[in-house]
Nucleic acid binder design. Structure first.
Lengths: 247, 247
DNA sequence: CGGCTTATTGACATACGTCAACTATTGTGG
DNA sequence: CCACAATAGTTGACGTATGTCAATAAGCCG
């Protein structure tokens, strides 16, 4: 089990060398979720926000915590981890640059259902929850952007549920590879953005099963080693996985 | 397999004896999602909406269809069904009075990821998709309500994913019963709102497995027959299911 | 290079699915 | 309202996908 770095108390912005830099601001303004928000509202939000750079393993929040910040990922990768009673841990979803984590907890002011762990060194914009909620009340554009963001994400979760209920482990792996290959035809080369054990958890299986799933997929023309994966024929894999555009 | 009644073409409102009645209007206005919406906006929406009464088995829309209406359930129950390549069918979620189905498809104007099937005779308010999107653009209150609705629902889906990945079949059944028992302590009597086969599908198992799961739960003080279920001690069941408030 | 973590492979265990028979429930038309 | 058919649920025997445990191999980092 990885030793998690717990970020318990947050250093106030003044005390950090990680305050908002121009480059970060540009990134935030470029994100789809904030593109249409009135500059004044966004300025107001950013004024009270700050940026943290967090190492792999850092824990942004724990399952059950009250939501104190909306975390906007500027760079790096995050995992939403759910833990069972028996300390088994699984991944519900990965988040990457441009994602807001986890809006529903902040919007509803309810405790987190999952923990947020840094999987790859990340720069995170921290927006105080109350300020964000105030901005939602003020700005129709921001609310609309959040609504759309949630709607998009809702569909991702539904796809995952369909995946878990209707597909075998090798098919789930194949579908994941296909989403990474994203619409390409014929042969495709992709690189897994995560460690295989994290991918296994996200797909609802053990690392051993993931290994065997990859072994089975060799028959479908899936090869490669380490994080590099090659698909000989995207169409063939798609047929094997019963992959349609709806999942 | 049930023989589904397909609602292919929709009768225009004028031609139906099922137009908006006062009772229905009252219901809609009472729903949390519409409570804060400006009366003018809501009136505008309702003016172009109509109501259908649909029998058990009716299909409101099919996986892959474009979203033409936002369906608001006034009474009855709906199931969101997902079908795999091999014609296996599962239930992603149940919807009941007060729920809007399926907002993300309408908001994003994207095809449905699932089919909507009536599980118990239902009165459905049909709001034309384009009008609804126009109302969202117009009304901050409506957008905010939808955002909150989606946030709430997002959490339900996350819980289901945690359930599927971290709990055994009997535990999933127990958790479902506990959500129905909803916070009561000691003994509780509940009635299942669905046929057992639908419940099995929602919980990601076969009817046979559901049966055996109930058999196992007898050891945990869960009894009853048909749709009536008694829990001898909610606390005991909660412990068995590793049920916390976060799922 | 050497030690640690991660990934793979094999042998085995088990939860759940499948198939089939039987029972209970529900709905329907005479 | 009963009778019977159709559908839904249960139970048992058995199969299989995936989990578990253990040993080995392969990456990765100091």
């Amino acid at each position: 089990m990885a030793h998690a770095v717990i970020i318990g108390t947050v250093t106030p912005p003044e005390a950090m060398d990680v305050s908002m830099r121009g480059q970060d601001e540009d990134r935030v303004r470029g994100f789809a979720a904030f593109a249409d928000v009135e500059p004044a509202v966004l300025d107001g939000l950013l004024e009270h926000s700050f940026v943290q750079t967090l190492p792999k393993g850092a824990v942004l929040f724990e399952q059950g915590d009250e939501a104190r910040f909306l975390h906007v990922i500027l760079a790096g990768r995050l995992g939403l981890m759910a833990r069972s009673d028996s300390d088994e841990e699984t991944v519900v979803e990965f988040f990457a640059a441009g994602d807001a984590v986890i809006a529903p907890a902040i919007i509803l002011d309810m405790p987190y259902l999952m923990s947020g762990r840094v999987l790859e060194e990340a720069r995170i914009l921290m927006m105080p929850a109350a300020r964000f909620r105030a901005a939602l009340a003020e700005s129709h554009a921001l609310t609309a952007a959040m609504m759309r963001e949630l709607a998009r994400h809702w569909r991702l979760l539904v796809r995952q549920i369909k995946d878990l209920k209707l597909r075998s482990a090798p098919q789930r792996v194949g579908c994941y590879l296909l989403t990474l290959a994203d619409g390409s035809e014929g042969a495709a080369a992709i690189v897994l953005p995560e460690e295989r054990r994290m991918l296994a958890a996200r797909l609802g299986m053990t690392p051993e099963s993931l290994s065997r799933a990859f072994a089975q997929l060799r028959e479908q023309g899936v090869g490669g080693r380490g994080r590099e994966v090659e698909i000989a024929d995207v169409g063939r894999l798609r047929a094997f996985c019963a992959y349609d555009d709806l999942a």
